[in-house]
Design a protein around this nucleic acid. Structure first.
Length: 203
DNA sequence: AAGCGGATCGTCT
DNA sequence: GACGATCCGCTTG
């Protein structure tokens, strides 16, 4: 994929593990009142692939199951506590799966992001924080990418030796699976790194 | 720097 | 009535 190319549905027509890794380095672009907010993806997690214990929680909801099993490239705004978390549906139709964007490095529009975060210091180093900083609306849920005011762009990927692969964090079920990906030593990666849980995965 | 408890709300039992 | 794919502020060392 070429740099600056807008990412379309076929990018997501594969395993969430592949998407989660390939999304590192890509750009999140949001046009808000004429201003471009841009962030580089530095942390992701794969969800809902076959045999995912965390997926069984999701599967209880028919609507969400239908969304995750539907066509790739659609937004899934997962609700946890009072927050919405940004996911993108993966896999061909009929196979459930999605990728959670956990953290981005702010590139431009930082002042606006700070305003949207209501002055909080932590701008985009957390899944709920970045949704707020990019003014991602909950009624975008299940809509396809790209949107006129929100899309993803390919950009320089981190070299393989800078990609960190660990277990997912913040959940109770399926926490042993090494389905979290992050850019090593990037200061915008969300805090709770568990280096000792580092696992090598064949992709 | 790290660990805690409370906030808060839609969905499911 | 209980539970989260979380965040924030307050406590310790």
């Amino acid at each position: 994929m070429k740099n600056c190319e807008v990412i379309s549905a076929d990018f997501f027509n594969v395993s969430p593990l592949t998407v989660a890794r390939q999304l590192l380095g890509c750009l999140l672009v949001r046009v808000l009142e004429g201003e471009r907010l841009v962030g580089r993806i530095v942390e992701t997690e794969a969800y809902g692939d076959l045999g995912d214990p965390a997926c069984h929680v999701i599967a209880r909801d028919r609507r969400i199951w239908g969304l995750l099993s539907g066509p790739p490239g659609r937004l899934y705004l997962h609700r946890s506590y009072r927050f919405a978390l940004l996911n993108i549906v993966c896999e061909p139709p009929g196979v459930p799966g999605c990728v959670l964007v956990r953290a981005v490095e702010p590139i431009s529009g930082l002042a606006t992001m700070a305003r949207l975060r209501r002055g909080a210091k932590a701008l985009t180093n957390g899944p709920a924080r970045l949704v707020e900083a990019f003014a991602i609306a909950e009624d975008w849920d299940s809509s396809p990418l790209p949107r006129p005011e929100f899309w993803l762009e390919a950009d320089e990927p981190p070299s393989a030796d800078r990609i960190l692969n660990t277990v997912r964090i913040g959940l109770k079920r399926g926490r042993e699976l090494p389905w979290r990906f992050a850019v090593r030593d990037n200061p915008w990666v969300s805090k709770r790194i568990r280096e000792n849980a580092l696992v090598e995965v064949e992709l």
